[in-house]
Every structure is written in C-alpha cells, then in structure tokens.
Design a protein around this nucleic acid. Structure first.
Lengths: 225, 225
DNA sequence: CCTGGGCGTTAAGGATGTGTCAAGAACGTC
DNA sequence: GACGTTCTTGACACATCCTTAACGCCCAGG
C-alpha cells in the first residue's frame, strides 16, 4: 500500500485529500506546517509527498531542500495560480511535479500515480553517442572519435553530466548552478559561461558554432544528441 | 455519465437545458440561485457547471470564487449580450468559457463537450501537438513539421506556455499579462499584441489568418489544439 | 461620413545576456 | 615549500531581447 504524506495548512484540503486518497487505497498521513512535515517525513518515510507551497512557518523550497538532503521521495507541489517563480523555484529545488490550486481530484491522482511509477529505479542508458564524441555516464568518460579520452575537470564533468542526463531538454541556468555548484548558487551565470565555453572547446568540432551544447538566450542550455 | 449542474434563475432556460441535456445523455440537476447552487456543487460534485451571471441573490463572480476555492470543475458562464466587463470578470475569476444569451443549443453543447474533455487529467508527458507544430512543455521545445526546432525568446515562450496550458480555454488579457510580466501589469495590452504577433509569425502557417492563436476581441486570447 | 477604440504590424533605442580572454586565488600532490 | 591544476573573478566586445512609439486597418456608433 502506497503511503502518502500531505503537508498543507488548509483543513478543508487536508480533509478532501484524506477522504479521496483513502478511498483509493492510499495510506494517508498529514501535517499542517513545514516543521512537523519534515519530522513526519523522517519518521514515516512516505512513498510520496504532497506539499503545499504556502505554509505558515517556512518557505516551500526550504521544505523541499530539507527532504532532498537525504531522500529522493517524489514530491508533488501544490501552488496557487500565477506564482510561476515560486513553482520554478520548487522544481529547481527538487520537486517532481506540481498541481495548481484549485485542482481536480482526477488530475492530482494521475500525477500521483505518475510520480510513484517514476520513482521506480530508472532504467538508465548510461552511454550517449554523437557523431563527434561519446559520453559514458557510468564510467565517467568522454571519448572523441579518433583520439582517445578527453580529460575533463570535475566541474566540467558535473556540468556535462547534468546536461546529458537531460538531453534534449532545456535546463535552466538556476538548475545547472544548483546542481553543479550547490543550492546557494543561482544567479552566478558567469560560471556557466566560462565552463560551457571550456566544454565546447574540448568537445565541439567547431567551438564557435556549437552543434551539441546549445544556448537558449535568457533561459539556459540544452544538450542535443 | 457526465453530470451537469445548471444554475440559472429563469425557469424557461432551466427547462430547455434539462430537456436537451438529458436527451444527450447528461445527468442534469438545477439550482435557481447562487446560494443553493454552491450547496449543490459541494453536495453533488458535478462534472461541469453552467452558470448564469445574472442571479438574483449574488454576483456571478462570487459564485465562481466560491467554487474555485476548492475545486477546478469546469465552469461555463451564461451572460446577456453587451455585459463585456462582467464576462471578463467571470473569466478572470476562473470561468472556463462563456456563451452569450440568447444562445444556440448546438453551441452550448459544443462548449460543454470541450470543457469536459479538457478537464480530463493532464497527461504525464505534457506534449501538445497540432497539424502544424508541436509544443513540448517539459523540454521547452517547439518543433515544426518538416524543419527542426523553432527558437523562442523567454517572453515568447512564457506567453505560449500559459496559452497552451489553458488550451481551448479563453485566457484574459489581464491573466496573460500577470502570468508573463508579473502582478504589476494588467492593462498593457500592447505587449500582448506585439508578442502574439511574433508567435503567430513563428508558428502559424498563415500568420495573418491564425488557426491556433485566436483573438477574442475585447477579452483575450485562446489556443486551439 | 466621420470618429474612436481595439487590434496587427513594424522598426529603433536601450537594457540585458552572452562569448571570450586573462590573471590571481585556492587546492592538492609530491 | 614548490609546483601544476583547477576554480573564481573581472573586463570587454558583441549579440540578443525587451520596451516603446508610431502607423494602418477594421468595425461600431454617432
């Protein structure tokens, strides 16, 4: 039986979720603020977390960081309409999905199922090949066509790894900074510029005209396979 | 079977809708004022709501807010001709669509079907496809049939994202402005005109005759999938 | 027929973001 | 402690994007 922990300060929502989820055979427990929510997470080890971003005692992203520090339990975030940056911050902090309030129970249930399904061990394809080079995520190695390996510094590798893991997808600058440099960073985009340039110099056949490490001005970077 | 709740104070309309909807295999219930309407919503949990804005006891937007506080059941609004600002207010409050009285039954039925279809749980993989282009919300990518990706600027993308997330639904100018440019904006409709034009130029097969990014004069825009 | 409002279109400036280079600081190794 | 590598930081030129204003069009109302 899947265990769900709901962290929300509105009693009506807690009640509605408890009723609906219990009816669907989930095991539901609740908390009404961030502090007791974090305590409940470490105590009960739920399979999924439903977290309202508008808690009275602490910011939603803080709660997410508090969980993500030691657990990868999927987190579905509830937020009111129009708070884009809050949602983005939550996703950057490690939330898995979000639902805007007011929400339909069907939608929430669908996202819940999806989150649980996804949290199953990821069938990783650890080798990504392009016409010009190959990235082996498991072995942490990059090889280029004719010649042998390419030496990457730790930071270069981490950056490349995040981009390759999200291949095809656009990765926000904030997301990159936080994954590579840590949660305290988010606006130091000059770091990215320097390291992306270094990666391009080492990997791209024509560094000034990138084919794989693409820039999306104002948004972030994207690895094209 | 789809359950419809009709809130209207005119007995003739109630009767007409009950007959027509029942014949189409909807399960119909009715209420004749706002208070009993709200009670009926929480009691019967209808799948769609048809709401007349000209109720005797309370303003239509109040009813909408009362519902939207905890549910995202689609709401179709009925209003008499010429009450533009009332309609806009209703849409801003969270209504999904509107029909002006007097209305043709066919139109109402079409909007009803559309509203119900939209309320189906959102797919895990948020990809919206049209005959001419494809929008991938997760990867932040737009691809056009034959040729490759289409480059969008951050603002263009945000605008498209809001419209696509509300696909089929009419989105108010105020709502768009606040979502994309921030809460301080609400009347700068010239921004919208500029950026909608840019999106049309990049996405529409015939930008001067839009097939997907539709204008609803005086109200807002709508993305048709 | 004229007028005004809303919409579409275009273009130019100013603001912001990006690529690049280089030098000093921090780190680990021998 | 000396050395080589890696990371950080600043400066600059250049590209891109946002904002703003102006104009033409269409339609409804006087």
């Amino acid at each position: 039986m899947t265990r769900v922990l709901v962290i929300d300060d509105e009693p009506s929502i807690l009640r509605a979720l408890r009723i609906n989820l219990t009816a669907r055979n989930y095991e539901v427990s609740t908390a009404s603020d961030g502090a007791s929510g974090l305590a409940a997470v470490s105590r009960e080890r739920p399979d999924v977390l439903i977290l309202d971003l508008g808690l009275p005692d602490m910011d939603g992203t803080e709660v997410i960081h508090g969980v993500r520090g030691w657990s990868s339990t999927p987190i579905i975030v509830l937020s009111v309409w129009g708070q884009e940056e809050q949602k983005v911050a939550a996703l950057d902090a490690g939330a898995d999905d979000y639902v805007t309030k007011p929400f339909g129970m069907d939608e929430l249930l669908a996202r819940l199922r999806a989150a649980v399904r996804r949290s199953a061990p990821a069938p990783d394809e650890p080798v990504v090949a392009t016409p010009d080079f190959t990235v082996d995520l498991a072995a942490k190695r990059v090889t280029r066509g004719g010649d042998g390996d390419i030496r990457l510094t730790p930071t270069e590798w981490q950056l490349l790894e995040v981009l390759v893991r999200n291949r095809g997808r656009l990765v926000t600058q904030r997301q990159l900074l936080q994954e590579v440099w840590g949660p305290a960073y988010g606006s130091e985009s000059n770091y990215l510029r320097v390291y992306v340039a270094q990666l391009r110099r080492k990997l791209e056949p024509e560094p000034s005209r990138p084919r794989y490490l693409l820039t999306e001005p104002g948004m972030g970077y994207r690895f094209r396979a």
